[in-house]
Amino acid sequence: MQMTTRVLSVALPVADMDAAVAFYVGVLGCEVRYDVEAVPGVRMVEVVPPGSQVGIVLLPPDSPVPIAVRLGTSDADAAYARLAATDGVVLHNDEVLRWEGVPPMFHFSDPQGNSLVYLETSKPA
């Protein structure tokens, strides 16, 4: 089973959201893909270089939203089960999260401690 379909985004912690957005848009030439309140009180901005599919998610350093590399998967449940059986992987959710308007997803750390999130991007044909 091919679990990872693509890199969706990379999250970075930023202390000053407005200054960070001004830099990524005004200096680096990125476009704002979205600017939302991800959870109450937490602003989340995704910027993307022109022509790129991969976004950069800007989050406050103390965000409850994981500062992680976000990966696509065709089957979040199968990916969760496979990672649950893999030594050294830490699952940060008790199950695949299913919230209205958001694809099924879960947060985990690889054996080196890097923070990753899987989001289901499509079902296999």
Rank of each mutant, 00 (worst) to 15 (best):
A15E: 15
D18Y: 07
Y34H: 15
L12D: 05
A22L: 07
G41N: 09
P40E: 13
M44T: 07
V32M: 02
P13T: 12
V39Y: 14
E37A: 08
Y34A: 03
P40Y: 03
M44P: 02
C30V: 01
S9I: 01
A22F: 06
R6M: 12
E37M: 11
E46W: 02
A11G: 12
Y24H: 14
V42Q: 14
V45F: 04
A38Y: 03
F23V: 08
P40V: 02
V27M: 05
E31Y: 00
D16Y: 11
A19C: 04
V45K: 01
P40M: 06
E37S: 07
S9P: 01
G26K: 03
P13R: 10
R33C: 03
A11S: 15
P13Y: 11
D18E: 15
A38K: 06
A20R: 10
A11T: 10
G26Q: 05
V21S: 01
A11I: 02
V39F: 15
L12S: 09
Y24V: 07
G29C: 07
P40A: 13
E46P: 03
V36G: 04
G41P: 07
A15Y: 04
D16W: 09
V32K: 00
V21F: 00
G29M: 05
R43K: 12
M17L: 09
G41E: 10
A22Y: 06
Y24D: 03
V10T: 15
A11L: 03
R33P: 00
P13V: 11
A38P: 03
P40S: 08
G29Y: 06
V39T: 11
V10F: 09
G41K: 04
C30Q: 01
L28S: 09
Y34E: 11
S9E: 14
V10G: 14
V14P: 00
F23A: 08
E31H: 10
V42R: 03
V7R: 12
L28D: 06
V42M: 10
V25C: 15
R33S: 13
R6P: 02
A20C: 10
S9F: 04
P13G: 11
C30E: 00
E31V: 02
E46L: 05
V45N: 02
L28E: 06
L28C: 12
R43I: 13
V7L: 15
F23C: 08
R33E: 15
C30I: 00
R43P: 09
A19T: 12
G41D: 09
A19I: 10
P13Q: 12
